[in-house]
């Protein structure tokens, strides 16, 4: 793994192009993601930040017409190689979606889903432990410990989203991708999630797509600004928000467009 200043580089994207059918959605993206940091991807709607996020765990495979070119190196391994095992990749790289999407199962089954698929628990006891630690890390344990066997869809929106985070961390991923995780939540639930993100970065590398500049400023250490499928500028959050190099970034940050 390369070093970049103080921090290790976890993910390194090189010359990434993405096409939806004939339309090109991302142009030549080069971006290094640092380990145990929160990287925020900002930019106006349709600028390709979610598309880029979905490249990192090959979620774009699900979309038939989507084609990804270029190199994305995680742990010295190019995930766009033919030999890449998508199942292992997604075990290492968890994802939290815009809308809370708990499975229509009990809370317990929601968390145990990933560990079961990847054969991580040998006994019921081990699984109980995984469920408990995951929920504790997602700051949900106290609220739900008495109703683990009730359906996950019965929780409030904020709780559901924390359940989805708990589900994502149950398989101990190295990286967690978050696609606007707070856009469907109220400010209180948002604050809880943001606190959680801060906590999680000790053990995980986090990449978050957000529309809220305030949120990006609050939670992230690194920021990348996308516009019309191009990565305009990236660097430390402080620098991007206080002293951006590019005028487009300046305009977007100050709310002049987008």
């Amino acid at each position: 793994m390369r070093k970049n200043g103080v921090n290790m580089i976890k993910i390194s994207a090189k010359n990434v192009d993405v096409f939806y059918g004939k339309k090109q959605a991302l142009f030549n993206i080069n971006l290094d993601i640092e380990e145990n940091q929160v990287t925020a991807l900002i930019g106006p709607s349709g600028c390709g930040k979610s598309t880029f996020l979905r490249c990192l765990n090959r979620m774009n495979d699900v979309i038939d017409i989507c084609k990804v070119q270029g190199e994305i190196v995680i742990n010295d391994f190019n995930i766009n190689d033919k030999g890449c095992d998508v199942v292992r990749l997604r075990e290492k790289i968890g994802m939290v979606f815009q809308k809370p999407n708990p499975f229509p199962k009990t809370l317990y089954e929601n968390i145990s889903y990933g560990p079961t698929i990847h054969g991580m628990a040998q006994s019921k006891q081990e699984m109980d432990e995984i469920v408990e630690t995951s929920l504790k890390k997602a700051a949900l344990w106290e609220e739900v410990k008495d109703r683990l066997h009730e359906p996950g869809t019965g929780l409030s929106g904020g709780q559901q989203q924390r359940l989805c985070i708990a589900r994502a961390i149950s398989v101990q991923p190295e990286v967690i991708l978050m696609d606007e995780p707070c856009s469907a939540l109220d400010p209180i639930a948002t604050a809880q999630i943001e606190e959680l993100i801060d906590e999680l970065k000790k053990e995980h590398t986090i990449i978050i797509v957000t529309h809220s500049m305030a949120q990006a400023a609050r939670v992230s250490q690194r920021t990348g600004f996308f516009h019309l499928g191009e990565l305009i500028e990236h660097g430390s959050t402080d620098k991007i928000f206080k002293n951006p190099d590019n005028t487009k970034t300046q305009d977007y940050i100050t709310g002049r467009f987008g």
């Binding site: 994802m95 979606f97 999407n101 229509p104 994502a168």
Partner: peptide
């Protein structure tokens, strides 16, 4: 069945 459930499952590494 909402696509978000499928995405959630794929993202967990399910086939």
């Amino acid at each position: 069945v909402p696509q978000s459930l499928r995405d959630g499952s794929y993202a967990m590494g399910a086939t």
